[in-house]
């Protein structure tokens, strides 16, 4: 089994603070972490390898510092890591991102399974997984909440979760899956893993290394553009109610009636 897990380094939500009065971001001490859903993708990749043999390669597109995310993945048991990194990738939207990741995966040769997190918590798009599957021309199952190997290792039975329940689906390899938090419990890094990760050579692949066409990457390859941004102000927040339980409830019910909710 040749398994690739795509991981993204994102700002740690817990360290990002917003000043809603001024409408600005307080950036002091923002830390980068692995996107939370991607831990479940890593665990799924490792469990497939443990059952079926082969190796797991973690792949990320990002600045050279994204190596740190790969080292963390390797400390959990991932065999290899690759960062695709090039200034020319900056400003990539999901269309350019899936092209870039697909070029990198194609360079790795035949792959049997590609694992992605359900979505990245910074962009929140959930588009990279399904888009990447199209680029690689492999089937895709999103929002996987349960996974079981079937047919003596030739395929998978999966629970695809949706709003009103789930579908049970079956699929052969190669396949791309996007993982939910409920899929598994990511393993903790081992001491041996940490030692190995520390010493591991992590290659940086440039746009040229993966044979990426200039017009398909970064800003040039991105049809969507940020036209403007603003930080929403929460107005009239933080009104603390006073009085007895009955008085507070009366006040609240009054307000909800005024808002047309009840």
């Amino acid at each position: 089994m040749n398994i690739v897990v795509c991981i993204k380094q994102v700002p740690d939500a817990a360290s990002v603070k917003w000043d809603h009065e001024k409408g600005t971001l307080l950036r002091d001490g923002v830390q980068s972490v692995i996107n939370p859903f991607d831990y479940n993708a890593i665990e799924a990749a490792l469990s497939l390898r443990d059952e079926l043999g082969g190796k797991v390669t973690a792949l990320t597109m990002g600045p050279p510092q994204a190596q740190e995310a790969l080292r963390e993945a390797m400390s959990m048991g991932v065999d290899d890591g690759v960062v695709v990194s090039d200034r020319a990738f900056a400003g990539a939207d999901t269309l350019a991102t899936t092209y870039t990741l697909a070029q990198a995966i194609k360079k790795m040769g035949q792959v049997d399974a590609v694992l992605c997190g359900k979505q990245a918590i910074d962009g929140d798009t959930a588009q990279v997984g399904p888009g990447l599957a199209v680029r690689l021309d492999i089937p895709c199952v999103t929002c996987v909440g349960d996974m079981e190997i079937i047919d003596g290792g030739k395929g998978l039975r999966l629970k695809r979760m949706c709003e009103q329940g789930y579908d049970v689906v079956e699929v052969g390899f190669p396949v791309l899956l996007t993982t939910l938090a409920s899929l598994n419990t990511p393993r903790v890094p081992s001491l041996k893993g940490k030692m190995r990760a520390k010493k591991a050579e992590i290659p940086l692949w440039s746009a040229a290394d993966i044979g990426a066409k200039e017009e398909k990457i970064g800003l040039k390859g991105s049809p969507t553009k940020v036209f403007s941004t603003h930080i929403p102000k929460f107005e009239a927040r933080r009104e603390m109610l006073q009085g007895t339980v009955e008085e507070q409830v009366d006040f609240l019910v009054q307000k909800l009636k005024e808002a047309g909710i009840i």
Binding site: L25, K225, V226, S228, T229, H230, I231
Partner: peptide, 8 residues
């Protein structure tokens, strides 16, 4: 926390 307006 951030609202972005996107065009294509």
């Amino acid at each position: 926390n951030l609202l972005a307006t996107i065009i294509c």
